[in-house]
Amino acid sequence: MAGASGERGRTGGKPSEDGSTLGMKIEQLSAFYGDFKALTDVSMDIQANKVTALIGPSGCGKSTYIRCLNRMHEVIPGAHAEGHVRLGDEDIYDKSMDPVKIRRRIGMVFQKPNPFSKSIYENVAWGARINGYKGDMAELVERSLKQAALWEEVKDRLKASGLGLSGGQQQRLCIARTLAVEPEVILMDEPASALDPVSTQKIEDTMEQLKQSYTVVIVTHNMQQAARISDYTGFFYIENMGDPGRLWEFDETEKMFSNPDRKETEDYVTGRFG
């Protein structure tokens, strides 16, 4: 499909230059809900230490796709995926792969903040603890909260309930929780859509820092957000009602928002859709 794979910087699946962060390579991925094919033949290279944004109209498969990237999709009864999703050199859909371990390595932050009904400290420590973390937990909690740009706001009340935080703080707590299990990739499904503009800005600033150490994939309905924070953008589209969604165009964000190749992409980013 013209433009759907992008032509620049094809290092998907390969680690960053210092070997510390992995990218992902998706090949011919299709997703099903029972017999219904929701997504078809998506191939994409997700570069290490970059933010990749996924945009497109409602119902075109973006959230389905991102859930396939850490095998959350199959948690839904009757749902399954076909194709290959490689984290580095490993195919996460290989029969030998443990989905639970995959979800630790490829973490997810959801649209609605969902902290545990525990203290701020425990929200961050709990996941690391059950994954067998044996190091200095207090140091891990502090590091994770700093990476999520929340430490300064909560350092004096770590025993307070996570539910007592504001929406934006709760979302950053969820990010810290994801970071504490030391993932390689962070998936975010509309992480700021439920937040006020100030919190949104803080989340976006956080993402800018996160990509220094992680690979980030974000679904967003906010095109200005995608233009601001992402390095690469993928546009998902359904050609006819009832068709499965597909990746229509994928390229560097600068190109997607200044001179996309496909008319449907340009109609969408300029708000002429519909």
Partner: peptide
């Protein structure tokens, strides 16, 4: 209006 693509051009 935060124009992009053809509108920005």
């Amino acid at each position: 209006q935060a124009p992009v693509a053809r509108d920005l051009r």
